[in-house]
Simulated scan of single mutants.
Amino acid sequence: MASHMNEYFRPVRQLDAENITFAAGVTALNEACALALCDPGDAILLGQYNYGAFPTDLVARTGLSFVYAAFGDSDQFSENCVKHFEAAYDQARQNGVNIRALLLCSPHNPLGRCYSQAALRGLAKFCEKNDLHLISDEIYALTVYQRPRHANESFTSVLAIDEGIIDPDRVHVLYGFSKDYAAGGLRLGCVISHNRAFTQAVRGGVCRFSSPSHFSMDIATKMLEDRPFIIRFLQDSIEALARQRVLVEALLDQSRISHLKEGNAGLFIWLDLSEFLDPYQQLDDGWAAEAALAAKLAAGGVVLSTGKRYQSPKPGNFRMIFSYDEGTLREGIKR
C-alpha cells in the first residue's frame, strides 16, 4: 500500500509500511481518529455538506460533538472556504467549545468535487495556526474522471501539501478498498500518518478489536502487487464513470430534474428535488416533506439518500448513485 500511495497520492514525504495502519474498514478508523486525537467533550470541525455517516462514526461512542462551517453562496472548495471555517472556529471558541481537529472529505461526498490546492494549503495553515489536526477522508481519491467540455477538477492529497505549511504530525489520511476498487466486502481500510504516537495509539489500543481479516489482507496484497491489473482496473473504472456521468446528466436534463453541474469525482450526483416537495407539508416542516418524498420514491423502487443525512442547509436535496447499468438508470429516472 505504501508503494501504491507513493505512486498515486504523491506525498511530499515518502510513505513506508510504518506510516500505515489497517483495520476492518474506514468506519472503525473514523472512530479511532476521534478517540486518539480528542477527549470527551471536544469537538471536530466540518463543512456543512459532509458524509452522512460521520456523526455516527465519530460521535456515537466518543462523547464528541461536531461544529459545522456554513458557506452560503461561496465555493467551499476554493481558498474562500478558509474564512468560513475560521468563522465557525472562532464562534465555537466564544461558546466555550474546544475544537481539536478539522475533518475533510476529499474528494467530497456527496458533492463529488475536489478541493483546490490553494484551499488545501489555506486549510493546512489554518490548522497549524490553531493547533488542530487535519483529518482527510480520501476514500474516493482515484475515482476522479474527466468530463468532456467541462472544467474538470484534479484531486490533491493533503499528503502532497508543501512542506513547512503544517507539521506532518498533524496530518492523517483515511483510505480503503470499498470505493476506488469496488471491494467493500473486503472490509479493509487504513489510516496514514507520520505521527508515531498517534499510530501507536491506534494500533496498540483503539483498533485492537477492529483487526482486518487475514484473507482480506491477502487478497488486497495480491491486487496491489499486480500492477498491470491495478492500472487497467482504475483506468477502466474512471472511463466507465465518465460515460455514466454524461448519460445520467442527459437523462436528468430530459426529465427536467435539477442537479449540480460541477464535479467529476465519486459515484454520485447531487439532485435538487425541492420543487416536488409537498408545499403544504413543507410550510409546516420541510424536513418531514423531504422524508415523505424519499418514502414515496422508495415505494416506487427508487432509493435516494436525503439531503438531511448530509447536513444540507435546506430540504429537497438528494444524492443519487449513477454507477449502474444504463437500463437501471433509465428506469430509475423515469420513475
Rank of each mutant, 00 (worst) to 15 (best):
A2R: 09
Y8G: 07
E18C: 04
N19V: 00
A24P: 01
G25E: 03
C33M: 14
C33V: 13
L37D: 04
C38N: 14
D39Y: 15
L46N: 03
Y51A: 10
F54S: 01
V59H: 08
R61F: 09
T62V: 09
F66R: 15
A70K: 13
D73E: 12
S74F: 02
D75G: 10
D75R: 10
N80C: 07
K83V: 08
F85S: 00
F85P: 00
A88W: 01
D90F: 02
V97Y: 03
V97G: 04
I99G: 09
Y115R: 00
L120A: 00
G122V: 00
N130R: 12
D131E: 02
L134C: 05
E138H: 05
I139C: 07
A141R: 07
R147A: 10
F155W: 01
L159A: 09
D162V: 05
E163Q: 13
G164E: 04
P168C: 05
G176K: 00
F177N: 13
A182R: 05
L186N: 01
L188E: 02
L188F: 02
V191I: 11
I192S: 11
S193G: 08
N195P: 11
N195T: 11
Q200F: 10
R208M: 12
R208F: 08
E225G: 10
D226I: 13
P228M: 12
I230N: 14
I230M: 15
I231V: 15
D236R: 07
A240H: 13
L241R: 04
Q244F: 08
V246P: 10
V246Q: 15
S255Q: 15
E262Q: 11
L267I: 05
L267K: 03
L267Q: 03
F268K: 05
F268N: 06
I269W: 05
W270Y: 13
W270I: 07
D284M: 11
K296T: 14
S305N: 14
K308L: 13
S312A: 09
P313V: 06
F318A: 10
R319S: 12
I321H: 15
T328F: 06
R330I: 05
R330N: 06
